Simulated scan of single mutants.
Amino acid sequence: MIYPIVAYGNPILKKEADEINEGTALDEMIQNMFATMDNANGVGLAAPQINEGVRLFVIDSNLMLDEEDEEKGIRKAFINPIILDEYGDDYSFEEGCLSIPDVRAEITRPEKLTIEYFDENWNLHEEEFSGMTARVIQHEYDHLEGILFVDYLKGLKKRLLKSKLVDVSKGKVSTDYRMVYPLR
């Protein structure tokens, strides 16, 4: 099943997500989240983006990498993740979001992170990720904290995007995937 994606302006996107009880059956939801992400040509999708206020996201960072990149991408689910540390050089990259179509901005993030999470079988992992994979994880993790990439913008950049963000919340955007708009 492909879920509709919640658009900018929906309060769930600004709320901290709730922890999931260990052992909860999530196979169907995870499969549907991957299908939804793939259908929208995304590289990540967090549960709040499908109107579920729980600490779960899926990513496929393979789509962010070129063949000559040394880094290997991953396709996996992260349940109840906790970023333990972010480190390395900060670098900027133009980010976008399925919940905020047609809006992109340069966002600066640390190049590496260590994260603890459960996989879909409720096995606990602690891993280090870097480069594009770390960036996708940071972006999706922010969704679980009620943070959107546009929240990092300041001053003039943020003011210039204001009308575009209002348009997104009203459904005045065109996407190839289904969305739910808060002001429509």
Score class of each variant (00 low, 15 high):
T133D: 06
E128T: 13
E140R: 12
L113M: 07
N123A: 08
E127L: 06
E120W: 09
P110I: 08
E116N: 05
E120V: 13
D119N: 09
K112L: 11
Y117R: 01
H139E: 14
W122N: 04
D119M: 03
F129E: 00
T114K: 15
L124H: 00
R135G: 06
T108K: 14
H125E: 02
T114E: 14
E127K: 11
H125F: 14
F118W: 07
R109F: 06
H143P: 10
G131C: 03
H139M: 12
H139W: 11
V136T: 14
W122I: 04
W122C: 04
T114L: 11
D119E: 02
E116D: 06
D119C: 03
E127N: 13
L124V: 02
E126D: 04
I115Q: 03
E140Y: 10
V136I: 15
F118L: 04
F118M: 03
D142I: 11
M132F: 15
E120P: 08
R135K: 11
F129L: 02
L124I: 00
P110Y: 06
E126N: 07
I107A: 01
Q138F: 12
W122H: 04
R135Y: 08
M132V: 10
S130P: 05
E111K: 14
E111V: 09
V136E: 10
T108I: 13
E116G: 02
K112Y: 13
E116V: 02
T114I: 15
E127M: 07
F118Q: 02
T108W: 08
E116M: 06
H125W: 12
H139L: 12
E111R: 15
N123T: 08
E111F: 10
E116A: 06
L113A: 06
I137W: 13
T108H: 08
E140K: 11
E120I: 14
M132P: 06
I137E: 13
E116S: 09
L124E: 01
H139I: 10
E128R: 09
E120N: 15
T108M: 10
F129H: 05
Y141G: 11
F118V: 00
K112D: 10
F129W: 04
E120C: 10
F129R: 02
E126S: 10
T114Q: 14
